[in-house]
Amino acid sequence: MLSLQKMRTLRALSLALCACFMLSGCLTAKMYVDPALPIASKTDLKRPAQPKPVQVLFEFRTKGNANAKATAEIRPRVVAVAAESALFSAVSSTAGESDGGVLKVVIDNIVLTDNAAAKGFGTGLTLGLAGSMVTDGYVCTASYSRGGKVTETTVKHALHTTIGNHSGPAGLTALEPQAAVHQVMDQITWNALKQLDSQGAFE
């Protein structure tokens, strides 16, 4: 027979156990930026002779659905890359001068790993001992329009995430989630600008 005191002790222990599982870091996520997309920067762009102002329209989607929170977080980074590129005389998120162009950037987050939810669930049930790795794909559709001329391009990128006890992709360095996501978004934008530039969009 267990006394009331022992039962209380058991209950406290079970709650403490749950708390430990919540706080232990067993389910720590590590992110790895896929190396396939070339690293692009300002030096890869050809500054137009007469840069024009641009309105940047950005939308982040999750499996095709607009994601307001992610849009709000990522939009400033896309606008910042456009400003840093020196391809435009002025960059704004709102409509501006009539002779300006419109840069439209849509990034859609799609899950590439088959049955990712089931894998994550398994990792959770084993408290991270059976780790898993999922891969998020990002498909960016970018277009620049000005004076009736429209130029479009597509950029694809990927982010690998390990959860629990699972090794990351060989040769890649683990990053903090926010840093990894920002790096992916920045590189997608730089590559989109580079590809649009190579098509003569900003001339």
Partner: peptide, 21 residues
């Protein structure tokens, strides 16, 4: 008595799960 213990444990875990969920 073991049933009571199990109830205590179960309810504690359920409580934690509910809070998590």
């Amino acid at each position: 008595m073991m049933a009571a213990v199990r109830n205590y444990l179960g309810s504690s875990l359920l409580l934690a799960a509910c809070l998590l969920a």
